[in-house]
């Protein structure tokens, strides 16, 4: 699975909502679409935190507002407040709603989980450049 991602190497936001918006702002989407996606991702967070491992969160959803997979990765040395925890890497993923159902969405989640497990926390948080961070997660960095 070769997917492209955008990267914010130094997130300026220190709280969850702002960090999600900062990542959404890197994606080629209309402002109104970003507003609605911010709402969808926040709803998912309210339903249950998406911290998948100490220091890493995965805000995600499927939405009819996108027609292709949208992935943005953010890194914060100081950390972003995420339901009372600090996360240093935020992997935002939005999948399109397709007639095939959530299979591809699930495969992408599985891909990310496998990469994180194989690389370990240090491999993810210690990646020295945006290209390396994207590479560790198995993505190609979008220009």
């Amino acid at each position: 699975m070769e997917r492209r991602c955008r990267c914010v190497w130094k997130l300026s936001s220190t709280d969850r909502k702002a960090a999600v918006r900062e990542l959404l702002d890197t994606l080629p989407l209309a402002d109104k679409t970003k507003d609605l996606l911010t709402r969808a991702l926040e709803t998912r967070e309210q339903a249950g935190p998406t911290v998948i491992r100490t220091g890493i969160s995965l805000p995600h959803c499927r939405s009819l507002l996108v027609d292709d997979f949208q992935i943005a990765v953010g890194r914060s040395v100081k950390g972003v407040e995420w339901h009372g925890q600090k996360v240093n890497v935020v992997i935002l993923m939005i999948s399109p709603v397709t007639p095939g159902g959530p299979q591809q969405h699930m495969e992408l989640m599985k891909h990310i989980a496998t990469r994180i497990r194989d690389s370990g926390l240090k491999g993810i948080t210690g990646a020295g450049t945006p290209e390396k961070l994207a590479g560790v997660l198995g993505f190609e960095l979008e220009d």
Binding site: L36, A40, T43, R44, L64, L65
Partner: peptide, 9 residues
Amino acid sequence: ISLHDIDVM
């Protein structure tokens, strides 16, 4: 639209 996204989730 939000309702639809929640239903999908």
